[in-house]
Design a protein around this nucleic acid. Structure first.
Lengths: 219, 219
DNA sequence: ACATTCAAGATTGTCAACAATTTCTTATAC
DNA sequence: GTATAAGAAATTGTTGACAATCTTGAATGT
């Protein structure tokens, strides 16, 4: 492992390749059903085929890649039905996190969430989609963080990676903020009020409405 | 790939090794924190080190094995706190399955569950722990099956693998059937009555009581 | 024209050797 | 006697080569 002139001369490790390939898939550089030929990827990323192979194996277990015996790997294409299922699982898990967050939240964290609620209202009033979308992500991440549920967090994160494509379309659907804003505010209120049952319900209702939208965009 | 005399002469594939190692871990042949030296496993299972290595990588993503850079792999030891978290996640996911099962269950499946309820009552009356434990597993599996939720099912299955050790101890705790039987019957009643909310609540309450028992056995 | 067979090319699966890193053992200094 | 350092052993990380398998396309026969 020598380093010369600031740039590393060594080739990429398996862990690095997993991260790079994961980013490429969730980022859309590698599109669903695209074949992932080991030799090609090795050449493109400047890595050995063995390491590429190992990385693909890991991503297969993560659910981002699909492999069939002797026929190679491709980017897994999640169907609408699967995306709905994934969102429903997320609904159940994030509801759990909301429940735990309502039990554990500190006063400081509560004012932080209240501020976030203010920013979301502002963003919707101003019609600022990007800001609202960003607050949305922050809210979900913050609730999971406050809940301190490692297992749930890891599972949610993995599932999210598989369904980002659908999540993405959804965000900039016209009229969507008008229905999701009150749901988000209800989540914040319940969590800050230390009301576990209400927080879980609010989160579940919110994400199941997301699932409904995904369902309807298909039919 | 030749086969001679009914037994295969080829060495083991990585998929087979993953299955064998997983069984060995969840079955207790490989105990928590036990080091998994690649060369040793290769010799023991009659496989190449490369394949053993690939199998360990997969099991690491599954959460059954722990690896640290340049220091090898060992059977992951899940702490009591983790086991509680896992059970709480299972509670959320199996509650989702119970909800969906209540929506989708057919009349035939309903009578099947009713019969199972009868067998469970009998087993508790007779004090037949093994039979009750078996019915318990069948009930959970059947509800997941009826729900037809692939994503949730896969997630539950993976998590269960990580916590079997705790599940096992619990099953033969004295006085446990007396508290879990009514919970199981409530689940069956709600699912058969096509009552999604009640089914989800009953399942969640049941598995959160399991989580409480795990918590208490520690302190 | 259509189906079948067979060879060539492409791709994945497996393995054994080599390199790098960590851990253990032993020798040396204080 | 303890601490430090150097060397040996054990173990993991990586690579390239070879074998097995699948795919493609041309040749052949009906």
């Amino acid at each position: 492992m020598e380093t010369l002139g600031g740039t590393t001369a060594r080739s990429l490790t398996v862990a690095e390749l997993v991260d790079m390939l994961r980013s490429a898939i969730v980022g859309g550089d590698l599109v669903p059903n695209q074949r992932l030929v080991e030799a090609d990827l090795a050449a493109e990323y400047g890595a050995s085929r063995g390491n590429i192979r190992a990385a693909l194996a890991e991503l297969t277990v993560e659910g981002l890649v699909e492999r069939v015996q002797n026929r190679g790997a491709r980017v897994r294409a999640v169907s609408v039905e699967e995306a709905v299922e994934i969102t429903e699982v997320r609904a159940a898990l994030e509801a759990l996190c909301a429940r735990k967050a309502a039990e554990r939240i500190t006063d400081d964290e509560a004012v932080e969430l209240q501020e976030l609620a203010g920013r979301m209202k502002d963003a919707v009033e101003r019609g600022d989609r990007d800001s609202y979308s960003e607050c949305n992500q922050i809210l979900h991440a913050r609730v999971i963080d406050i809940s301190a549920q490692q297992t749930a967090a890891a599972t949610i994160h993995r599932l999210r990676g598989q369904a980002v494509r659908f999540q993405f379309r959804l965000a900039r659907q016209p009229g969507r903020p008008a229905v999701s804003l009150p749901q988000h505010l209800a989540i914040i209120d319940a969590v800050c009020a230390h009301n576990p049952d209400a927080a879980a319900d609010a989160m579940r209702v919110h994400l199941e409405s997301v699932a409904d939208v995904i369902r309807s965009t298909h039919s």
